[in-house]
Design a protein around this nucleic acid. Structure first.
Lengths: 247, 247
DNA sequence: ACAAAAGTGTTAATACTACACCCATGC
DNA sequence: GCATGGGTGTAGTATTAACACTTTTGT
Protein backbone atom coordinates (compact mmCIF):
# COMPACT_ATOMS: atom_id res chain seq x y z
CA UNK A 1 0.00 0.00 0.00
CA UNK A 2 2.83 2.36 0.82
CA UNK A 3 4.59 2.69 -2.51
CA UNK A 4 6.24 6.07 -2.63
CA UNK A 5 9.12 6.64 -0.21
CA UNK A 6 7.68 7.35 3.20
CA UNK A 7 9.43 9.00 6.10
CA UNK A 8 8.27 8.78 9.67
CA UNK A 9 6.95 11.93 11.36
CA UNK A 10 9.52 13.67 13.58
CA UNK A 11 8.69 14.72 17.14
CA UNK A 12 10.32 17.09 19.62
CA UNK A 13 11.81 15.51 22.72
CA UNK A 14 11.97 17.08 26.15
CA UNK A 15 13.08 15.92 29.57
CA UNK A 16 11.11 16.87 32.67
CA UNK A 17 12.26 16.43 36.24
CA UNK A 18 10.44 15.50 39.42
CA UNK A 19 13.02 16.61 41.99
CA UNK A 20 12.22 15.59 45.56
CA UNK A 21 13.97 16.57 48.76
CA UNK A 22 13.22 16.95 52.44
CA UNK A 23 12.80 20.38 54.01
CA UNK A 24 11.75 20.86 57.63
CA UNK A 25 10.50 17.30 57.81
CA UNK A 26 8.31 17.56 54.74
CA UNK A 27 8.78 16.17 51.26
CA UNK A 28 9.05 19.03 48.78
CA UNK A 29 9.22 19.24 45.02
CA UNK A 30 11.01 21.81 42.91
CA UNK A 31 8.70 23.82 40.64
CA UNK A 32 9.51 26.71 38.34
CA UNK A 33 7.29 29.53 37.20
CA UNK A 34 7.17 29.53 33.43
CA UNK A 35 8.57 32.71 31.92
CA UNK A 36 7.09 32.27 28.47
CA UNK A 37 4.14 30.84 26.60
CA UNK A 38 2.52 28.40 26.63
CA UNK A 39 1.29 28.48 30.23
CA UNK A 40 3.26 31.65 31.03
CA UNK A 41 3.17 32.31 34.75
CA UNK A 42 2.02 28.81 35.64
CA UNK A 43 4.04 26.47 37.83
CA UNK A 44 5.73 23.62 35.99
CA UNK A 45 8.36 20.95 36.37
CA UNK A 46 11.92 21.93 35.48
CA UNK A 47 12.88 20.61 32.07
CA UNK A 48 13.51 21.45 28.48
CA UNK A 49 14.34 20.31 24.99
CA UNK A 50 17.39 18.35 23.97
CA UNK A 51 20.27 20.74 23.33
CA UNK A 52 21.43 19.14 20.12
CA UNK A 53 20.56 16.08 18.10
CA UNK A 54 23.27 13.96 19.69
CA UNK A 55 22.62 14.70 23.36
CA UNK A 56 21.85 11.63 25.46
CA UNK A 57 18.51 11.74 27.27
CA UNK A 58 20.05 11.03 30.66
CA UNK A 59 22.69 13.70 30.06
CA UNK A 60 19.98 16.21 29.26
CA UNK A 61 18.26 15.35 32.52
CA UNK A 62 21.51 15.87 34.41
CA UNK A 63 22.03 19.16 32.63
CA UNK A 64 18.58 20.46 33.54
CA UNK A 65 19.11 19.28 37.09
CA UNK A 66 22.33 21.23 37.56
CA UNK A 67 20.94 24.30 35.82
CA UNK A 68 18.09 24.38 38.31
CA UNK A 69 19.78 23.35 41.52
CA UNK A 70 23.49 24.08 41.08
CA UNK A 71 24.02 20.56 42.29
CA UNK A 72 27.42 18.91 42.45
CA UNK A 73 26.40 15.82 40.50
CA UNK A 74 27.29 12.52 42.09
CA UNK A 75 25.33 13.00 45.29
CA UNK A 76 22.00 12.81 43.57
CA UNK A 77 19.84 9.90 42.51
CA UNK A 78 18.43 10.19 38.99
CA UNK A 79 16.36 7.60 37.16
CA UNK A 80 13.96 7.52 34.26
CA UNK A 81 10.32 7.65 35.31
CA UNK A 82 8.11 7.33 32.24
CA UNK A 83 7.38 8.93 28.89
CA UNK A 84 4.43 11.19 28.26
CA UNK A 85 3.47 11.85 24.67
CA UNK A 86 -0.26 12.53 24.38
CA UNK A 87 -0.86 14.28 21.09
CA UNK A 88 -2.57 17.27 22.70
CA UNK A 89 -0.35 17.78 25.73
CA UNK A 90 1.63 20.69 24.27
CA UNK A 91 0.06 23.38 22.06
CA UNK A 92 3.37 23.95 20.26
CA UNK A 93 3.11 20.63 18.44
CA UNK A 94 4.07 17.02 18.98
CA UNK A 95 6.24 17.20 22.05
CA UNK A 96 7.15 13.98 23.82
CA UNK A 97 8.58 14.23 27.31
CA UNK A 98 10.78 11.67 29.03
CA UNK A 99 10.16 12.34 32.72
CA UNK A 100 12.81 11.60 35.33
CA UNK A 101 12.77 11.22 39.09
CA UNK A 102 15.54 12.89 41.07
CA UNK A 103 16.14 12.51 44.80
CA UNK A 104 18.61 14.73 46.62
CA UNK A 105 19.65 15.55 50.17
CA UNK A 106 18.47 18.85 51.54
CA UNK A 107 19.27 21.38 48.85
CA UNK A 108 19.85 25.11 49.22
CA UNK A 109 17.14 27.56 48.34
CA UNK A 110 16.64 27.45 44.58
CA UNK A 111 18.88 29.71 42.57
CA UNK A 112 16.80 32.46 41.02
CA UNK A 113 18.32 34.46 38.23
CA UNK A 114 19.36 31.43 36.22
CA UNK A 115 17.36 29.85 33.45
CA UNK A 116 14.12 29.65 35.34
CA UNK A 117 12.46 32.96 36.07
CA UNK A 118 11.52 31.71 39.50
CA UNK A 119 11.95 28.40 41.24
CA UNK A 120 10.65 27.23 44.60
CA UNK A 121 10.35 24.20 46.83
CA UNK A 122 6.69 23.37 47.21
CA UNK A 123 5.40 20.81 49.73
CA UNK A 124 4.42 17.68 47.81
CA UNK A 125 1.15 17.53 49.70
CA UNK A 126 0.12 20.94 48.38
CA UNK A 127 0.76 19.86 44.80
CA UNK A 128 -1.06 16.55 45.14
CA UNK A 129 -4.10 18.18 46.68
CA UNK A 130 -4.39 20.46 43.67
CA UNK A 131 -3.61 23.71 45.49
CA UNK A 132 -1.03 24.59 42.86
CA UNK A 133 -2.19 24.45 39.25
CA UNK A 134 0.50 22.98 37.07
CA UNK A 135 1.16 23.47 33.36
CA UNK A 136 0.76 20.76 30.72
CA UNK A 137 0.16 17.27 32.15
CA UNK A 138 2.68 17.89 34.88
CA UNK A 139 0.32 17.05 37.73
CA UNK A 140 0.02 13.54 36.39
CA UNK A 141 3.80 13.27 36.14
CA UNK A 142 4.19 14.48 39.72
CA UNK A 143 1.67 11.92 40.94
CA UNK A 144 3.50 9.12 39.13
CA UNK A 145 6.87 10.30 40.43
CA UNK A 146 5.78 10.50 44.05
CA UNK A 147 4.11 7.13 43.86
CA UNK A 148 7.32 5.70 42.42
CA UNK A 149 9.33 7.20 45.27
CA UNK A 150 6.94 5.81 47.87
CA UNK A 151 7.09 2.33 46.41
CA UNK A 152 10.85 2.31 45.91
CA UNK A 153 11.37 3.22 49.56
CA UNK A 154 9.84 -0.14 50.42
CA UNK A 155 12.07 -2.31 48.30
CA UNK A 156 15.22 -0.33 47.57
CA UNK A 157 17.79 1.75 49.42
CA UNK A 158 16.46 4.92 47.79
CA UNK A 159 15.83 6.56 51.18
CA UNK A 160 19.55 7.14 51.67
CA UNK A 161 19.47 9.44 48.65
CA UNK A 162 17.43 11.89 50.73
CA UNK A 163 20.19 12.00 53.36
CA UNK A 164 23.66 13.44 53.22
CA UNK A 165 26.74 11.24 53.25
CA UNK A 166 26.41 10.62 57.00
CA UNK A 167 23.10 10.20 58.78
CA UNK A 168 21.56 8.74 61.90
CA UNK A 169 18.95 6.03 61.92
CA UNK A 170 16.35 8.46 63.21
CA UNK A 171 17.08 10.81 60.31
CA UNK A 172 16.53 7.90 57.95
CA UNK A 173 13.25 7.18 59.68
CA UNK A 174 12.17 10.77 59.17
CA UNK A 175 12.66 10.27 55.44
CA UNK A 176 10.27 7.35 55.49
CA UNK A 177 7.75 9.23 57.58
CA UNK A 178 7.84 12.30 55.36
CA UNK A 179 7.58 10.43 52.06
CA UNK A 180 4.94 7.99 53.25
CA UNK A 181 3.08 10.49 55.38
CA UNK A 182 2.89 8.08 58.30
CA UNK A 183 4.45 7.65 61.74
CA UNK A 184 6.70 4.73 62.54
CA UNK A 185 7.82 3.12 65.77
CA UNK A 186 11.40 4.29 66.42
CA UNK A 187 12.50 1.10 68.14
CA UNK A 188 11.21 -1.32 65.53
CA UNK A 189 12.47 0.81 62.67
CA UNK A 190 15.89 0.82 64.29
CA UNK A 191 16.19 -2.94 64.15
CA UNK A 192 14.51 -3.42 60.81
CA UNK A 193 16.97 -1.28 58.88
CA UNK A 194 19.90 -2.91 60.64
CA UNK A 195 18.55 -6.36 59.82
CA UNK A 196 18.91 -5.65 56.11
CA UNK A 197 22.51 -6.52 55.30
CA UNK A 198 24.33 -3.88 53.28
CA UNK A 199 21.61 -1.22 53.56
CA UNK A 200 23.49 1.02 55.98
CA UNK A 201 27.00 0.59 57.39
CA UNK A 202 28.32 2.21 60.58
CA UNK A 203 30.56 5.20 60.00
CA UNK A 204 32.28 4.96 63.38
CA UNK A 205 31.67 8.42 64.71
CA UNK A 206 28.71 9.89 66.55
CA UNK A 207 26.65 13.01 66.28
CA UNK A 208 25.88 15.22 69.23
CA UNK A 209 22.46 16.74 69.36
CA UNK A 210 20.61 19.15 71.59
CA UNK A 211 20.89 16.97 74.63
CA UNK A 212 20.29 13.28 74.95
CA UNK A 213 22.42 10.33 74.00
CA UNK A 214 24.56 10.88 70.88
CA UNK A 215 23.48 8.89 67.83
CA UNK A 216 25.74 6.64 65.81
CA UNK A 217 26.39 7.76 62.27
CA UNK A 218 25.90 5.58 59.23
CA UNK A 219 26.51 5.85 55.52
CA UNK A 220 24.74 4.16 52.61
CA UNK A 221 25.82 0.57 52.09
CA UNK A 222 26.38 -1.34 48.85
CA UNK A 223 22.98 -3.04 48.81
CA UNK A 224 20.33 -1.50 46.54
CA UNK A 225 17.55 -4.08 46.99
CA UNK A 226 16.05 -4.38 50.46
CA UNK A 227 15.34 -7.80 51.89
CA UNK A 228 13.27 -8.11 53.88
CA UNK A 229 11.50 -5.01 52.54
CA UNK A 230 10.16 -2.19 54.70
CA UNK A 231 6.46 -2.49 54.05
CA UNK A 232 4.49 0.74 54.09
CA UNK A 233 1.78 0.58 56.77
CA UNK A 234 -1.72 0.72 55.38
CA UNK A 235 -4.16 2.95 57.23
CA UNK A 236 -7.01 0.66 58.33
CA UNK A 237 -9.92 0.90 55.93
CA UNK A 238 -13.47 1.62 56.97
CA UNK A 239 -14.58 -1.88 55.94
CA UNK A 240 -12.06 -3.55 58.19
CA UNK A 241 -13.16 -1.39 61.07
CA UNK A 242 -16.85 -2.20 60.73
CA UNK A 243 -16.02 -5.88 60.51
CA UNK A 244 -15.30 -6.33 64.18
CA UNK A 245 -18.44 -4.59 65.31
CA UNK A 246 -20.65 -6.45 62.90
CA UNK A 247 -19.52 -9.82 64.19
CA UNK B 1 24.20 33.20 24.30
CA UNK B 2 21.47 31.90 22.05
CA UNK B 3 20.45 35.01 20.19
CA UNK B 4 19.16 33.87 16.82
CA UNK B 5 15.93 31.87 16.87
CA UNK B 6 16.73 28.34 17.94
CA UNK B 7 14.65 25.28 17.31
CA UNK B 8 15.05 22.03 19.18
CA UNK B 9 16.41 19.03 17.24
CA UNK B 10 13.68 16.65 16.09
CA UNK B 11 13.93 12.91 16.69
CA UNK B 12 12.17 9.89 15.21
CA UNK B 13 9.92 7.94 17.56
CA UNK B 14 9.31 4.20 17.46
CA UNK B 15 7.44 1.78 19.64
CA UNK B 16 8.90 -1.65 20.40
CA UNK B 17 7.04 -4.55 21.97
CA UNK B 18 8.10 -7.22 24.42
CA UNK B 19 5.25 -9.70 23.93
CA UNK B 20 5.22 -12.56 26.41
CA UNK B 21 3.07 -15.66 26.44
CA UNK B 22 3.15 -19.23 27.72
CA UNK B 23 3.72 -22.13 25.36
CA UNK B 24 4.14 -25.71 26.56
CA UNK B 25 4.84 -24.53 30.09
CA UNK B 26 7.58 -22.11 29.06
CA UNK B 27 7.58 -18.33 28.83
CA UNK B 28 8.17 -17.28 25.24
CA UNK B 29 8.73 -13.98 23.53
CA UNK B 30 7.72 -12.95 20.02
CA UNK B 31 10.66 -12.04 17.78
CA UNK B 32 10.68 -11.11 14.12
CA UNK B 33 13.44 -11.56 11.58
CA UNK B 34 14.28 -8.18 10.10
CA UNK B 35 13.62 -8.00 6.39
CA UNK B 36 15.65 -4.89 5.70
CA UNK B 37 18.68 -2.95 6.82
CA UNK B 38 19.91 -2.15 9.34
CA UNK B 39 20.45 -5.55 10.94
CA UNK B 40 18.80 -7.39 8.03
CA UNK B 41 18.26 -11.03 8.94
CA UNK B 42 18.75 -10.45 12.66
CA UNK B 43 16.06 -11.18 15.23
CA UNK B 44 14.38 -8.14 16.72
CA UNK B 45 11.41 -7.02 18.73
CA UNK B 46 8.24 -6.22 16.80
CA UNK B 47 7.75 -2.49 16.45
CA UNK B 48 7.90 0.47 14.16
CA UNK B 49 7.64 4.19 13.65
CA UNK B 50 4.64 6.31 14.42
CA UNK B 51 2.25 6.25 11.47
CA UNK B 52 1.54 9.96 11.44
CA UNK B 53 2.38 12.95 13.57
CA UNK B 54 -0.84 12.75 15.56
CA UNK B 55 -0.82 9.05 16.45
CA UNK B 56 -0.86 8.36 20.19
CA UNK B 57 2.05 6.28 21.45
CA UNK B 58 -0.19 3.70 23.11
CA UNK B 59 -2.29 3.46 19.95
CA UNK B 60 0.82 2.79 17.91
CA UNK B 61 1.77 -0.01 20.31
CA UNK B 62 -1.70 -1.53 19.94
CA UNK B 63 -1.44 -1.26 16.16
CA UNK B 64 1.91 -3.05 16.03
CA UNK B 65 0.57 -5.69 18.40
CA UNK B 66 -2.39 -6.54 16.21
CA UNK B 67 -0.31 -6.43 13.03
CA UNK B 68 2.01 -9.04 14.48
CA UNK B 69 -0.36 -11.30 16.34
CA UNK B 70 -3.79 -10.82 14.77
CA UNK B 71 -4.98 -10.33 18.32
CA UNK B 72 -8.53 -9.39 19.17
CA UNK B 73 -7.59 -6.48 21.40
CA UNK B 74 -9.20 -6.41 24.80
CA UNK B 75 -7.84 -9.72 26.01
CA UNK B 76 -4.30 -8.46 26.18
CA UNK B 77 -2.39 -6.54 28.78
CA UNK B 78 -0.31 -3.65 27.43
CA UNK B 79 1.72 -1.14 29.42
CA UNK B 80 4.59 1.21 28.84
CA UNK B 81 7.94 -0.24 29.86
CA UNK B 82 10.65 2.39 29.38
CA UNK B 83 12.20 4.64 26.76
CA UNK B 84 15.50 3.90 25.05
CA UNK B 85 17.21 6.71 23.22
CA UNK B 86 20.98 6.23 23.24
CA UNK B 87 22.42 8.37 20.48
CA UNK B 88 24.16 5.47 18.77
CA UNK B 89 21.48 2.81 19.06
CA UNK B 90 20.19 3.13 15.49
CA UNK B 91 22.51 3.81 12.54
CA UNK B 92 19.69 5.58 10.67
CA UNK B 93 19.86 8.59 12.95
CA UNK B 94 18.38 9.75 16.22
CA UNK B 95 15.69 7.17 16.85
CA UNK B 96 14.06 7.04 20.27
CA UNK B 97 12.02 3.97 21.15
CA UNK B 98 9.23 3.77 23.70
CA UNK B 99 9.22 0.10 24.67
CA UNK B 100 6.05 -1.61 25.84
CA UNK B 101 5.32 -4.84 27.67
CA UNK B 102 2.47 -7.00 26.40
CA UNK B 103 1.13 -10.13 28.07
CA UNK B 104 -1.31 -12.41 26.31
CA UNK B 105 -2.88 -15.84 26.76
CA UNK B 106 -1.52 -18.62 24.59
CA UNK B 107 -1.46 -17.18 21.11
CA UNK B 108 -1.60 -19.05 17.80
CA UNK B 109 1.53 -19.60 15.77
CA UNK B 110 2.69 -16.23 14.47
CA UNK B 111 1.20 -15.12 11.20
CA UNK B 112 3.89 -15.06 8.54
CA UNK B 113 3.17 -13.24 5.33
CA UNK B 114 2.17 -10.03 7.06
CA UNK B 115 4.43 -7.12 7.79
CA UNK B 116 7.19 -9.13 9.36
CA UNK B 117 9.08 -11.39 6.99
CA UNK B 118 9.18 -14.04 9.68
CA UNK B 119 8.00 -14.16 13.26
CA UNK B 120 8.48 -16.84 15.89
CA UNK B 121 7.94 -17.59 19.56
CA UNK B 122 11.34 -17.99 21.19
CA UNK B 123 11.77 -19.32 24.74
CA UNK B 124 12.67 -16.40 26.98
CA UNK B 125 15.47 -18.40 28.51
CA UNK B 126 17.17 -18.77 25.13
CA UNK B 127 17.08 -15.04 24.56
CA UNK B 128 18.35 -14.14 28.02
CA UNK B 129 21.24 -16.57 27.76
CA UNK B 130 22.38 -14.88 24.57
CA UNK B 131 21.70 -17.82 22.24
CA UNK B 132 19.78 -15.53 19.91
CA UNK B 133 21.57 -12.37 18.83
CA UNK B 134 19.18 -9.46 18.75
CA UNK B 135 19.31 -6.26 16.71
CA UNK B 136 19.84 -2.78 18.18
CA UNK B 137 19.70 -2.66 21.99
CA UNK B 138 16.80 -5.08 22.02
CA UNK B 139 18.46 -7.58 24.36
CA UNK B 140 18.55 -4.91 27.04
CA UNK B 141 14.88 -4.12 26.44
CA UNK B 142 13.97 -7.80 26.70
CA UNK B 143 15.86 -8.11 29.97
CA UNK B 144 14.05 -5.08 31.39
CA UNK B 145 10.69 -6.36 30.18
CA UNK B 146 11.09 -9.81 31.67
CA UNK B 147 12.30 -8.39 34.96
CA UNK B 148 9.26 -6.11 35.01
CA UNK B 149 6.96 -9.08 34.40
CA UNK B 150 8.62 -11.11 37.16
CA UNK B 151 8.26 -8.28 39.65
CA UNK B 152 4.70 -7.41 38.71
CA UNK B 153 3.64 -11.01 39.24
CA UNK B 154 4.49 -10.54 42.90
CA UNK B 155 2.42 -7.45 43.52
CA UNK B 156 -0.23 -7.29 40.83
CA UNK B 157 -2.79 -9.54 39.19
CA UNK B 158 -0.76 -9.59 35.98
CA UNK B 159 -0.57 -13.39 35.98
CA UNK B 160 -4.20 -13.65 34.91
CA UNK B 161 -3.24 -11.90 31.67
CA UNK B 162 -1.30 -15.05 30.72
CA UNK B 163 -4.47 -17.15 31.08
CA UNK B 164 -7.62 -17.25 29.04
CA UNK B 165 -10.92 -16.01 30.41
CA UNK B 166 -11.37 -19.14 32.50
CA UNK B 167 -8.55 -20.94 34.25
CA UNK B 168 -7.81 -23.30 37.11
CA UNK B 169 -5.63 -22.46 40.07
CA UNK B 170 -3.01 -24.94 38.93
CA UNK B 171 -2.86 -23.23 35.55
CA UNK B 172 -2.29 -19.95 37.32
CA UNK B 173 0.46 -21.58 39.32
CA UNK B 174 2.11 -22.76 36.12
CA UNK B 175 2.24 -19.13 34.99
CA UNK B 176 4.16 -18.21 38.12
CA UNK B 177 6.49 -21.18 37.76
CA UNK B 178 7.23 -20.47 34.11
CA UNK B 179 7.85 -16.74 34.53
CA UNK B 180 9.86 -17.04 37.72
CA UNK B 181 11.63 -20.24 36.72
CA UNK B 182 10.93 -21.86 40.08
CA UNK B 183 8.73 -24.59 41.50
CA UNK B 184 5.98 -23.82 43.98
CA UNK B 185 4.05 -25.93 46.45
CA UNK B 186 0.64 -26.62 44.94
CA UNK B 187 -1.20 -26.69 48.25
CA UNK B 188 0.21 -23.48 49.65
CA UNK B 189 -0.21 -21.65 46.34
CA UNK B 190 -3.83 -22.76 46.30
CA UNK B 191 -4.62 -21.02 49.53
CA UNK B 192 -2.43 -17.99 48.98
CA UNK B 193 -4.17 -16.86 45.82
CA UNK B 194 -7.57 -17.44 47.38
CA UNK B 195 -6.59 -15.39 50.41
CA UNK B 196 -6.16 -12.31 48.22
CA UNK B 197 -9.63 -10.81 47.95
CA UNK B 198 -10.65 -9.92 44.42
CA UNK B 199 -7.69 -11.59 42.71
CA UNK B 200 -9.65 -14.52 41.27
CA UNK B 201 -13.38 -15.21 41.50
CA UNK B 202 -15.06 -18.63 41.07
CA UNK B 203 -16.71 -19.12 37.70
CA UNK B 204 -18.99 -21.90 38.90
CA UNK B 205 -18.15 -24.64 36.47
CA UNK B 206 -15.41 -27.23 36.47
CA UNK B 207 -12.93 -28.52 33.97
CA UNK B 208 -12.40 -32.19 33.28
CA UNK B 209 -8.85 -33.27 32.64
CA UNK B 210 -7.10 -36.51 31.71
CA UNK B 211 -8.12 -38.33 34.84
CA UNK B 212 -8.20 -37.10 38.39
CA UNK B 213 -10.52 -34.81 40.20
CA UNK B 214 -11.99 -31.97 38.11
CA UNK B 215 -10.70 -28.50 38.95
CA UNK B 216 -12.86 -25.50 39.69
CA UNK B 217 -12.70 -22.71 37.16
CA UNK B 218 -11.97 -19.09 38.01
CA UNK B 219 -11.85 -15.80 36.18
CA UNK B 220 -9.82 -12.66 36.88
CA UNK B 221 -11.27 -10.56 39.68
CA UNK B 222 -11.49 -6.78 39.99
CA UNK B 223 -8.40 -6.39 42.18
CA UNK B 224 -5.20 -5.29 40.43
CA UNK B 225 -2.93 -4.91 43.47
CA UNK B 226 -2.16 -8.07 45.42
CA UNK B 227 -2.21 -7.95 49.19
CA UNK B 228 -0.60 -9.84 50.67
CA UNK B 229 1.80 -10.17 47.75
CA UNK B 230 3.10 -13.46 46.38
CA UNK B 231 6.79 -13.14 47.12
CA UNK B 232 9.13 -14.80 44.67
CA UNK B 233 11.25 -17.41 46.43
CA UNK B 234 14.97 -16.63 46.45
CA UNK B 235 17.31 -19.51 45.71
CA UNK B 236 19.65 -19.79 48.73
CA UNK B 237 22.93 -18.02 48.05
CA UNK B 238 26.34 -19.63 48.48
CA UNK B 239 27.19 -17.27 51.33
CA UNK B 240 24.19 -18.31 53.34
CA UNK B 241 25.10 -21.92 52.85
CA UNK B 242 28.69 -21.55 53.95
CA UNK B 243 27.61 -19.59 57.00
CA UNK B 244 26.34 -22.60 58.92
CA UNK B 245 29.48 -24.63 58.32
CA UNK B 246 31.89 -21.81 59.08
CA UNK B 247 30.45 -21.06 62.49
C1' DA C 1 -9.41 -51.11 43.07
C1' DC C 2 -6.01 -47.97 41.80
C1' DA C 3 -3.74 -43.96 39.85
C1' DA C 4 -3.99 -39.15 39.28
C1' DA C 5 -5.12 -34.66 40.13
C1' DA C 6 -7.64 -31.33 43.39
C1' DG C 7 -8.30 -29.60 47.71
C1' DT C 8 -7.80 -29.51 53.38
C1' DG C 9 -5.55 -29.75 58.15
C1' DT C 10 -1.76 -29.29 61.11
C1' DT C 11 2.53 -27.86 62.99
C1' DA C 12 7.02 -25.75 63.71
C1' DA C 13 9.53 -21.89 62.45
C1' DT C 14 9.70 -17.27 61.39
C1' DA C 15 8.63 -12.44 61.36
C1' DC C 16 6.09 -8.52 63.15
C1' DT C 17 3.97 -5.24 66.63
C1' DA C 18 3.63 -3.08 70.78
C1' DC C 19 5.59 -1.58 74.62
C1' DA C 20 8.57 -1.95 78.97
C1' DC C 21 13.00 -0.96 79.96
C1' DC C 22 18.04 0.40 80.07
C1' DC C 23 21.94 3.75 78.35
C1' DA C 24 24.50 8.09 77.60
C1' DT C 25 24.66 12.74 77.36
C1' DG C 26 23.65 18.19 78.47
C1' DC C 27 22.22 21.12 81.91
C1' DG D 1 19.52 14.54 89.51
C1' DC D 2 16.69 14.65 85.71
C1' DA D 3 15.09 15.66 81.14
C1' DT D 4 16.02 14.11 76.51
C1' DG D 5 16.81 11.39 72.91
C1' DG D 6 19.33 6.67 71.62
C1' DG D 7 19.29 1.80 71.88
C1' DT D 8 17.78 -3.28 73.74
C1' DG D 9 14.66 -7.11 75.52
C1' DT D 10 10.59 -9.63 75.26
C1' DA D 11 5.94 -11.48 74.88
C1' DG D 12 1.84 -12.10 72.20
C1' DT D 13 0.26 -12.43 67.52
C1' DA D 14 0.13 -13.12 62.60
C1' DT D 15 2.40 -15.38 58.43
C1' DT D 16 4.77 -18.83 56.30
C1' DA D 17 6.65 -23.37 54.64
C1' DA D 18 6.52 -28.13 54.75
C1' DC D 19 4.08 -32.08 54.37
C1' DA D 20 0.54 -35.66 55.87
C1' DC D 21 -3.93 -36.43 54.54
C1' DT D 22 -8.71 -36.55 52.34
C1' DT D 23 -11.74 -36.01 48.19
C1' DT D 24 -13.21 -36.82 43.47
C1' DT D 25 -12.66 -38.28 39.22
C1' DG D 26 -11.00 -41.76 34.88
C1' DT D 27 -9.75 -46.38 33.73
Amino acid sequence: MQVEPWSPPPVLLTVDLVILTLRRGRMCILLVERGEDPFQGRLALPGGFLNHAGEEILDAAHRELSEETALTAGWVHLEQLATYGDAGRDPRGRVVSVAHLAIAPRLPEPVAGTDAADAAWVPAEAVLSGEAELAFDHLRIVRDGIERARTKLEFSALATAFCGELFTIVELQQVYEAVWGTELDTRNFYRKVQAVKGFIVPAGSERRSTGGRPARLYRAGPQTALFPPLIRPVPPTAEENTREEGD
